[in-house]
């Protein structure tokens, strides 16, 4: 008994110390001491931020989204019967074409309802990821830069590289055209437009314009996205019940 109580006495100061230090950490990290608790969610959230990292690891000062992290999560979402819907949050500057297309194809082939929200920016390869969801939203202030696919760094064999990039660009264009309401001509017009970007060809499409062009389904934020995903979940439940009957 004595030993036990002594032990407790010994531990208490330590615990208090760790409690106060974790409190300080929380304030440093979040600017607040406690966050609200919530019940189990049937909707999962996938955030795609910073650069979409491809086959080469980017230096640590870059904020990146790695496909090797996201692809297994997407499979887990598809497999878990408790998860009924997925919300994708996008704030990306673009990145690796093949990694971005891999994510887009995974999201578009998930059987559960998916809704995406473009916040801040969904540039370059962020465009196919945004349109890959069943329904896409963009906040009014968000922008999407549409420009030709290109390569930085060393180029070996210009004609071959050009053809390779051209093919890669066609894959992006085809994906976007197939998964959104934009016409191929319109998307190409935006991609190769001159005079919109100061040092480049392409177009910077702002929230409402993206909806006008048919690229994104609607202007809206979290509230609209959650309403939509719940509506899609209810539709799917209804369909399943009909099949059973």
């Amino acid at each position: 008994m004595n030993k036990d109580s002594e032990k407790k006495d010994d531990q208490q100061p330590n615990e208090e110390q760790s409690n106060s230090s974790s409190l300080v950490q929380k304030i440093q990290a979040l600017g607040q001491t406690n966050v609200p608790q919530a019940p189990d969610s049937n909707i999962h959230v996938l955030s795609i931020v910073g650069q979409v990292e491809g086959h080469i690891q980017l230096p640590p000062q870059n904020k990146t989204t790695k496909y090797e992290h996201l692809l297994p999560q997407l499979v887990a979402i598809e497999q878990n019967p408790k998860i009924e819907g997925l919300v994708i949050l996008l704030n990306t500057v673009g990145g690796d074409v093949e990694a971005g297309l891999a994510l887009s194809e995974m999201i578009s082939s998930i059987s559960k309802p998916t809704v995406s929200i473009v916040l801040g920016g969904g540039h370059s390869i962020g465009v196919p990821i945004a349109v890959s969801a069943d329904y896409s939203f963009i906040v009014p202030t968000a922008t999407m830069t549409i420009h030709p696919v290109r390569l930085t760094g060393l180029v070996i064999g210009v004609p071959q590289t050009f053809e390779y990039l051209d093919k890669m660009q066609d894959r992006v264009i085809n994906f976007v055209v197939n998964h959104s309401n934009i016409k191929e001509e319109k998307f190409k017009d935006l991609m190769f437009a001159k005079g919109n970007l100061t040092r480049d060809i392409g177009t910077n499409v702002v929230g409402t314009d993206a909806v006008e062009y048919g690229l994104i389904d609607a202007v809206g934020g979290v509230k609209e996205a959650m309403e939509k995903v719940n509506e899609l979940i209810n539709n799917q439940r209804g369909n399943q019940q009909e099949v059973i009957q």
Partner: peptide, 8 residues
């Protein structure tokens, strides 16, 4: 994680 609860 994709579970919003984990972030709380």
């Amino acid at each position: 994680s994709t579970d919003p609860k984990d972030f709380l």
